[in-house]
Amino acid sequence: MVENTQQINYFNYITTDLTQTILSHLPLKSLIRCSTVCKQFRSITNNPSFHPTAQTTPWFFLYGLNNISCKKNQSFAYDPLLNEWIHVPKTCFPDTLLAESSISGDKGLFFNTAGVNFSLSPILKPLWFIGGLVDMEDNLGVEIYDGDLNSWEICPPLPADFRSGNSSQSLCSGLFKERFYVFGIYSGFVSSFDLEKRVWSDVQTLRPPGVVMSCLISCGRELMLAGLCNDVRGHSFNLWRVDELTMEFSVVAIMPSDLLNCLFDSDGDDQFASLKCVGYGNFIFVFNEEHRRNYPACVCEIRSDSGECRWRRVPDLPEPVNRFHKVIGFCSTIPIHRILGSEVV
């Protein structure tokens, strides 16, 4: 009996549609590898109609700046599906950022606002576009940039309540249901800008009892508040669901105490000053920007089907990790076609 040593390709026996469905459930890192396996896989992953589930899952980015030498700057990206960090090439980010820089990310783009400058860059592909921005520290002015038309529109500045004791560094923002929300991290002031009518809403106060600092985050179909509380039972990190019409809130999850404790290594009153929080979609990331703990982080995934909140610790950053004078964290989805179209894999 002659042994058949010919390798069987079982994908030849299934339809292209089924192959596409199978590939669509893979993490991005696995998709990149699959795209190099054969022409069929490459054709499927490069097709504009291919929309894998993974590209709707936001990655968590940490960008570390060293004021002494830009050669020590480092960038990391965390994929929640694989539960892994990767090193991001330095060329994907600017060498220097001003102290007043405000950073965010969305759909594979890295945004940097600093004084009179604005820039955006496709993550994982070194390309920059420069424009102008009203000085945020003077009157907290607002402009909207239309990427399709490559033009700016001057909008009414933030309501006067935000101009007293606030700066762009003490504010967070998010887009939810065609409204642009701005929130005071410490003041609890909140206002939304109607993108259709081009007007700001009245300023309201969103401040749960005992809250020390908090961030307003657009999570899928819900508006969420994430923040640190201090009461007679001690510190806790809570998540609240917010009604966008009434600004009423209700607790949906509390970070397990062992996870909160792993973010800090002291009992001082200022130990929580380095706590930062960012989120996108169904994920909220909480991290410590202090070097001595190697920038530990936790993540909460909010299940779309049940609303269940699952907390877990994010793995340590991959060594080596340099010492940074400033750490910037943000979330962004990463389109597969942007990665496959770049040299970075």
Rank of each mutant, 00 (worst) to 15 (best):
V314P: 10
F330H: 00
L206C: 10
G141K: 05
T45A: 15
D146T: 07
D161I: 07
T205F: 14
N112T: 15
G188H: 07
E153I: 09
F249R: 05
S168E: 05
R42I: 00
N139Q: 15
A226V: 05
V2S: 13
L81C: 13
H51A: 10
V252T: 01
T45F: 11
L124Y: 02
F189V: 09
Q74M: 09
S121R: 09
R241H: 04
S168K: 04
T5F: 13
F264S: 06
H325G: 15
C300E: 05
W59K: 07
P156R: 05
P122V: 10
S173N: 11
M247S: 12
D79E: 15
T91G: 12
L97I: 15
C331Q: 05
I154T: 07
K326M: 04
G141S: 04
D148A: 13
P159K: 12
N139R: 13
L149F: 03
Q7A: 13
I339F: 09
F330W: 06
N166A: 11
L340T: 09
F50P: 05
R303N: 06
Y10D: 03
V232G: 00
C277W: 03
H325A: 06
F283W: 14
C298T: 13
K326D: 04
D316G: 01
P296E: 01
S49K: 01
Y10I: 14
R293K: 13
I328Q: 00
P58S: 06
S104Y: 00
C34V: 06
S214Q: 02
R293I: 11
R303T: 05
F93G: 12
G210H: 01
I14T: 10
I144W: 11
A253T: 01
I334D: 04
T333Q: 09
T15M: 00
L82T: 12
F61D: 08
T16P: 05
P156S: 08
W240P: 01
E343M: 10
S164M: 12
G165E: 02
D148C: 13
G108A: 08
F285Y: 14
P320W: 03
G227K: 04
F11G: 07
T57H: 07
N322D: 14
R310S: 07
F249Y: 14
K72V: 00
I334T: 14
P48D: 07
V286L: 14
G174Y: 00
V252W: 02
V116G: 00
L18S: 10
V142I: 11
S274R: 04
G341A: 15
G147N: 08
S342D: 02
V212E: 07
V345Q: 05
I103L: 09
L18N: 11
T19E: 12
N47R: 09
S170L: 12
F61Y: 15
V327I: 11
N322F: 14
L81I: 15
T333F: 05
